[in-house]
């Protein structure tokens, strides 16, 4: 049960903060370029990396129990279901 009382070294917090700022700058920089349909995936990938960093370190998910990690994923998993099946419909409409 050491996980519940894990004290993260300050160095890690500052490193993550630094990475988040850098990634924010990067996402602004890269949005200047037009990749066509890839614009959204590029922007989202960077956002996902940032969100993952925040969750793993600031929110201590890396040090949490398996159960907590499972529930963290479940929210996003069911969000995925919502998107997947809705777009199953829209992307397969023959008349579009």
């Amino acid at each position: 049960m050491s996980s519940a009382h894990h004290v993260v070294p300050l160095r890690i917090y500052f490193t993550i903060f630094f990475l988040l700022i850098v990634l924010t700058g990067f996402t602004v920089f890269i949005s200047k370029f037009d990749f066509g349909v890839m614009n959204l995936p590029v922007a989202l990938s960077i956002a996902i990396v940032k969100a993952t960093l925040i969750m793993l370190f600031f929110m201590h998910v890396k040090y949490s129990s398996r159960l907590t990690q499972l529930f963290v994923l479940s929210g996003f998993f069911f969000m995925g279901i919502l998107f997947f099946f809705t777009f199953c419909d829209y992307l397969t409409r023959a008349w579009n």
Partner: peptide
């Protein structure tokens, strides 16, 4: 946890709303 979550939402809102038209 709550505060970080609200931050994460913004991490997605910023590129989706503001950066989409940056090019």
């Amino acid at each position: 946890l709550y505060w970080h979550f609200v931050d994460i939402v913004w991490v997605f809102l910023f590129p989706l709303l503001y950066l989409t038209g940056n090019h």
